[in-house]
Design a binder for these strands. Sequence first.
DNA 1: TCAATATTAGTAATGATAATTATTATTGAA
DNA 2: TTCAATAATAATTATCATTACTAATATTGA
Lengths: 139, 139
Amino acid sequence: MSNTDFRLTPQRKIILEELMETDTHLTAAEVYEIVRARLPRISLGTVYRNLETLSQLGMIQKLEVGGTQKRFDGKTNIHYHVRCLSCGRVDDAPIEPQTALEEAIEGLTDYEIIGHRLEFVGLCLKCGKKPGGEARTRA
Amino acid sequence: MSNTDFRLTPQRKIILEELMETDTHLTAAEVYEIVRARLPRISLGTVYRNLETLSQLGMIQKLEVGGTQKRFDGKTNIHYHVRCLSCGRVDDAPIEPQTALEEAIEGLTDYEIIGHRLEFVGLCLKCGKKPGGEARTRA
DNA sequence: TCAATATTAGTAATGATAATTATTATTGAA
DNA sequence: TTCAATAATAATTATCATTACTAATATTGA
């Protein structure tokens, strides 16, 4: 039996392609909407299942940013994010991984430290302008 | 009309007391369980509503840590957290706020930066020991 | 004392995600 | 090639966390 029985189905291929082509980071629902333009019969469950599978295989990254929905990232290297408090948009943060942070707490807690997540919050270009554009998304 | 019509009901008082007394950071469901020992007839909805109200008033803090559930903190000052990847437990991280981080990205993004969140992940004392104790909670 | 308002318990509704299931597609060995 | 084994799908249902609704109770201040 081959344990390499991962099949790059049309659904998976297109999900991957669309994730690669976006510079922001999409929710499962957003991926579903976008992919549906090319595969109208795909189901939301398939999107969820494959986003999970692909991130399990390390081909994409499941992000744990604030807000109520998970977001997915075509880039798998370690990097940080900026999130808009108004519309929920998430972009990459142009700052290098701060390894010094983990060294700083090493030994100061009972925890075996494995990693860290840094997320900046603020207002994106679009939401920062208009004065009524705040507090749209919950937390 | 007084706009100071916040009433410190027994429910709210006890929720606050219990939050203050814990060193870790509880989910709404955990608060519910603990408070129920003293107020058996309280409802889960009341717990959620009051956790929201109290954090809105700045008396407690609603945390946006990873995992599927929000957590609540009796301390309202700015500080960081460590989260156990196995059991989900969240403790304070003994490290000062890194104001330099926000200065570092200032001007490098289109965002108006308002703040940042830093969360360390790892294994707590209990989960780090036992070899089967990993990957209990999702993400 | 009483009407206005706040809060509650209980329950139903929502939204995000995961599990189930029956069907379709793909593979690799005979 | 053909066919049984396996993988993946679409569609549906279930689950979990959270929020909204509602009718009843409690509190306040005139």
